[in-house]
């Protein structure tokens, strides 16, 4: 009987302390870590079309189309198929593809989530967070590391 009362007292304590853990979402947004991996942002100006991101992508989410002169024509990324592993950002030598902290994206159909380079470019920064700022120190360790051959295709 004591145990039952203890249990009931515990829940009543929570009911009376008035604290809530959930937030009233659209009005109040929970904090997102600077390292959070959200929708991609792509910069055609930076991209050197080395295709490393396409290569490293574990589930063929990125599709790159180039012409005969190896000039980039299309950069397509299906953000509904992406598993947000951040490997594309990790291998990119010029920071042309980044994962913003933006987690709010919707589409009525799956097709709407297949982004081309224009749509990728227009992905907004989330609360003006620059993902590179939080990632820079470790990026140094990554870029230019390793003994093996670099496969630029």
């Amino acid at each position: 009987m004591i145990g039952i009362l203890k249990g009931m007292a515990t829940t009543m304590k929570h009911a009376l302390d008035g604290e809530t853990f959930t937030v009233s979402y659209p009005e109040e947004e929970p904090d997102v870590s600077p390292r959070f991996r959200g929708v991609h942002k792509f910069s055609q100006e930076r991209c050197i079309w080395c295709r490393q991101c396409e290569n490293v992508c574990p589930n063929d989410t990125i599709q790159i189309v180039m012409d005969d002169q190896r000039n980039g024509e299309q950069y397509n990324l299906h953000i509904g198929q992406c598993i947000y592993c951040r490997l594309c950002e990790e291998v990119c030598p010029v920071d042309a593809i980044l994962l913003t902290e933006n987690f709010e994206f919707v589409g009525d159909t799956k097709d709407e989530l297949a982004y081309n380079k224009e749509e990728l470019k227009n992905v907004p920064w989330y609360k003006d967070l620059d993902p590179l700022e939080s990632r820079e120190p470790d990026r140094e360790a990554w870029v230019g590391e390793g003994d093996g051959e670099v496969d630029y295709q």
């Binding site: 997102v32 870590s33 600077p34 390292r35 959070f36 991996r37 598993i83 947000y84 592993c85 951040r86 490997l87 990790e90 939080s134 990632r135 120190p137 470790d138």
Partner: peptide, 28 residues
């Protein structure tokens, strides 16, 4: 998960380990 998000960048699908170490140092 908040702590792990700060560390790895995701709440469930961390992809934080790498062969030979981890992806990131502790967050600043």
């Amino acid at each position: 998960q908040n702590l792990l998000e700060d560390l790895s960048g995701q709440r469930l699908m961390f992809n934080y380990f790498r062969l030979g170490g981890v992806a990131w140092d502790l967050p600043e």
